[in-house]
Computed example of a mutant assay.
Amino acid sequence: MTIDRRSLLRTSGVAAAGALGAAALSSTARAAGFTAPAHGPHSTGSGPTDGVTRTLLQEHPSPAEGWETVQTLVQIPRHKESGRHSHPGVEVGYIVRGDVLMKFDDRPSIRLRTGDPFFIPSGTIHNAVNVGKVTTMMLSTYVVDEDESLVTTY
């Protein structure tokens, strides 16, 4: 199956809704709460993470044995947050749209705006809070231990 990744980003993942079904998600991504776009919000109710979606774009074995590379599109509605979490490897990201306050347990928070890259070291507990006026879109690529869950929540 071929998916035009540029179209996917331009349409906030909606164009791929039919092409990326739940079967396309790895067990690692499913265990981490990632959904295909057609499956909607990551959580329900009226909490701070309501409406946050994490869409798996691609997943591949890393050149380093025992590691995998996972790329996602994270969308955080206005006044919502990703929730405190960490990853068993590095996260390299880019703010496609919006404004985020990236909070850390072990260092000062940083403000990220459209066009800003970011890097989060392995095991670092963090929380992305949408402080802007639009739904934030973040492109995140992880290089993680293939035997561990992609996300650990706190």
Score class of each variant (00 low, 15 high):
1 M>E: 05
1 M>W: 00
2 T>V: 12
3 I>W: 11
4 D>K: 07
4 D>M: 05
4 D>R: 07
4 D>P: 05
5 R>A: 14
6 R>Y: 10
6 R>P: 00
7 S>Q: 12
10 R>F: 01
11 T>D: 12
11 T>H: 03
12 S>C: 09
12 S>G: 11
14 V>C: 04
15 A>P: 04
17 A>Q: 08
17 A>S: 10
17 A>N: 02
25 L>T: 05
26 S>P: 02
27 S>R: 08
27 S>I: 15
28 T>G: 05
29 A>C: 06
30 R>I: 11
31 A>C: 08
34 F>Y: 15
35 T>L: 15
36 A>G: 09
37 P>I: 07
37 P>S: 06
39 H>K: 13
39 H>Y: 11
39 H>Q: 15
39 H>L: 07
40 G>A: 04
40 G>I: 00
40 G>Q: 15
42 H>A: 11
42 H>I: 13
43 S>T: 14
43 S>H: 08
45 G>S: 07
45 G>R: 08
46 S>L: 11
46 S>D: 12
46 S>F: 07
47 G>D: 12
48 P>E: 12
49 T>M: 08
50 D>Q: 13
51 G>M: 03
52 V>P: 01
53 T>R: 01
54 R>C: 04
59 E>V: 07
60 H>P: 01
61 P>I: 07
62 S>V: 04
63 P>L: 03
64 A>R: 02
64 A>M: 10
68 E>T: 06
68 E>G: 02
70 V>F: 00
71 Q>G: 11
71 Q>F: 10
72 T>D: 03
72 T>N: 00
72 T>G: 04
72 T>V: 12
74 V>R: 06
74 V>S: 14
75 Q>W: 01
76 I>Q: 12
77 P>A: 05
77 P>Y: 02
77 P>I: 10
78 R>K: 14
78 R>W: 09
78 R>F: 15
79 H>D: 11
83 G>R: 14
84 R>E: 12
86 S>L: 10
87 H>W: 02
87 H>M: 00
89 G>Y: 01
90 V>C: 00
92 V>M: 08
92 V>L: 15
93 G>E: 14
94 Y>F: 13
97 R>T: 11
98 G>E: 10
99 D>M: 03
102 M>F: 05
103 K>H: 05
103 K>I: 07
104 F>L: 00
106 D>S: 13
106 D>N: 10
107 R>E: 09
107 R>I: 02
108 P>Y: 08
110 I>M: 09
111 R>S: 11
112 L>I: 06
113 R>T: 12
114 T>S: 11
115 G>T: 03
115 G>S: 03
116 D>N: 08
117 P>K: 06
118 F>H: 12
118 F>T: 07
118 F>A: 05
120 I>F: 03
121 P>S: 14
122 S>T: 12
123 G>P: 00
124 T>S: 08
128 A>D: 03
129 V>M: 05
129 V>P: 04
130 N>L: 01
130 N>G: 06
131 V>F: 00
132 G>L: 05
132 G>Q: 02
132 G>E: 06
132 G>D: 03
133 K>M: 09
135 T>V: 08
136 T>C: 13
137 M>K: 09
137 M>V: 10
138 M>G: 10
139 L>H: 09
139 L>T: 03
140 S>F: 07
140 S>W: 02
141 T>A: 15
142 Y>T: 01
142 Y>P: 02
144 V>I: 13
144 V>N: 02
147 D>G: 12
150 L>I: 09
151 V>F: 04
151 V>H: 00
151 V>I: 15
152 T>I: 13
152 T>Y: 14
153 T>S: 13
154 Y>T: 13
